[in-house]
Amino acid sequence: MGHFLSPVPSKIQQHSFYIEGTITDAQVIELIRKGHTEAYGDLVRQYHKRVMGYCFSMLSNHTDAEEAAQDVFVKVYTSLNKFKGDSSFSTWLYRITANHCLDVLRKRNRRKNVSLESLVEQEGSQIQKLFATPSVADTHLENRQLADKILSTLTEDQRQILTLREAEGLEYQEIADVLNCSLDAVKGRLARARKQLQENLRHIQKSWDVSNIENKKEKGS
């Protein structure tokens, strides 16, 4: 699992402004402000994986995630003058990413709301398979769609905080900085989101077991 706020383990290219250990995000931003627009490409490369990973976890669809990640980087570029350095660049970038994905997700969820019951009915056996054989659980399209459906049973805020912690591996304090809330609020919100996810999964499991037993009885009689 990647760690958003720590620098990417170096994949530094020849043309890059990032020469290991010699230039910081703030210095690259200064270069961009002075007119070296091309330096922004290095900033994009530096954070591409983490922004893309976040968008993917929130939106569960490669095309949507890439579009959202592009939007984020364009938005960041146009508001670079607003970045005052009160927080680290990565925290600021993450805040913009988190808000953007939340907007996309809210618009999307207005169109489709997943209930636990319909999920069990339609995808019960697939969900069983997904958790029974974790080795197949990669980013394969079908599994992603299923994961998206399961995560859609949570509120957008719950999904957001879980993505920050479980997908991106942010520390609690880093999550507090990104979401602009206290450490205690993060502890509470994360515990509630995890509990909700556990309960939803248990509910799916139980309902599937019950409907499976009923089906077997019907077939037997």
């Binding site: 699992m1 990647g2 994949k11 490409g41 994009v44 490369r45 591409h48 994986k49 893309m52 990973g53 993917f56 976890s57 490669h62 995630a65 890439e66 990640a69 592009q70 997904l130 958790f131 974790p134 659980a137 990669d138 980013t139 599994n143 994961a147 399961i150 995560l151 879980l162 993505t163 479980e166 997908a167 996810l197 999964l201």
Partner: peptide, 20 residues
């Protein structure tokens, strides 16, 4: 299940260049 639900995509250097 968190590992399954929050699995990240595999991105290559070529993906990174195209994206940038």
């Amino acid at each position: 299940f968190a590992g399954i639900l929050f699995a990240l995509p595999t991105l290559s250097e070529a993906d990174e260049d195209i994206f940038t």
